[in-house]
Write a protein that binds this DNA or RNA. Structure first.
Lengths: 219, 219
DNA sequence: GTCTATACACTGATAGAC
DNA sequence: GTCTATCAGTGTATAGAC
């Protein structure tokens, strides 16, 4: 009976705490992503979370620590998934089609993360070092090496033209990501700032990009 | 005599003023580009310009106005030049080679502008509207239309595969610009954070990108 | 855990002397 | 034009009651 009470109370408190903590993190995401580290205000985050500033500091002692959490979460949504998409054992062209489809979907799902992550990193590249130190090393080198070997094999088999793996990856990601982080400029300059037209443009990007890449690398 | 005195004094003052004004603008560029609008501090700009805050406000009344000048200058370095590179009358493939060479050179000359401009625009797209209103309309539509017509002509002539002009431009710029704005991530994840290796990588990008595009679009 | 009130530092901007 | 001094506002963070 008392055990039940304790357990229920405990789990209630845990649940409650988790909710507030989560509400804060969600609000912090919204604000940091748009305003950036230096532009974000603890007051705005508190308002959006429906609490007050003091409670913010109760859960995450400083703005820095809260930012760190938000950044790390954003970073982890993208980088490991990105690398994961390259590590299947499909043939190169299928792998690229799979990657472009999934990566662009991911970008459309989180359109503010790339600009946020890249601009914060350009302002303070040290953030990345801290993340790498804190996390188990990614297996990016294995993935890259495998991809490189796979390309070479398919080149010898007469399927692909010779192509450098790193350059290819940078090209692919660049073509996928630029319409998102460059949206204000591209929409303004090439699409008369017409939002609907730009959304139409985004809809057909997957097919265009895939065809563009394959045309370039297939033997 | 007195006229001489006035003229000399006047020209001395003009020269002097110009120097201070320019020193401020240079310092403001340095600080705003790295820290962004909200992260920049008037004190830091003053220090870097070798003057004090009061003098900053004497020349540019507010932080907003100073930021506006810096942003507009940065924006104008890129966008008109970018469009200009597409408006020669060379054949498409030559035009693209010319564009990639010059655009990447421009990027390497001003590596902080793209990230600065894009992140500020993502945070406040309204900036772009103000710039467009203040400036004589760019001829982006003519340039795009001409480029599109030119492609269609060369498609009919059997030189190129059919390709959409806007998608092609976004691809080209994306492949050129991503190694710059994404440098911290790419260098960290794909180049073991080795700066020298990354610089080597950048050196060969022009050739790789040109070949990649041409392989994709030539008939 | 959550609140109100407040400490304390910093920032943009101005006043006024030279 | 350039400086020193200073103000008013805002921002992060903490103290203390409940």
């Amino acid at each position: 009976m008392w055990l039940n009470y304790i357990v229920n109370t405990y789990s209630f408190m845990k649940e409650h705490e988790k909710n507030t903590e989560q509400k804060i993190l969600d609000a912090a995401e919204d604000v940091f992503m748009i305003k950036g580290m230096s532009g974000a205000r603890m007051q705005e985050i508190a308002d959006k979370a429906g609490i007050n500033k003091a409670l913010l500091h109760y859960y995450y002692r400083t703005k820095d620590k809260l930012f760190e959490k938000v950044f790390e979460k954003a970073f982890k949504i993208f980088i490991p998934k990105t690398l994961g998409m390259m590590s299947s054992d499909k043939p190169v062209i299928e792998k690229i089609e799979f990657f472009v489809n999934n990566y662009i979907s991911l970008l459309y799902k989180h359109p503010f993360i790339p600009s946020f992550v890249l601009s914060e990193l350009n302002r303070n590249p040290q953030i990345l070092v801290n993340i790498f130190e804190k996390n188990i090393q990614f297996t990016e080198n294995d993935i890259l090496e495998n991809f490189d070997k796979q390309i070479k094999t398919e080149v010898e088999a007469g399927i692909l033209k010779p192509v450098d793996a790193r350059n290819l990856m940078v090209n692919i990601i660049g073509m996928c990501i630029f319409p998102i982080i460059g949206r204000p400029v591209i929409q303004g300059v090439l699409f008369e700032n017409n939002k609907a037209k730009y959304n139409e443009f985004l809809k057909q990007r997957k097919e265009f990009v895939k065809e563009f890449i394959i045309n370039s690398i297939k033997a």
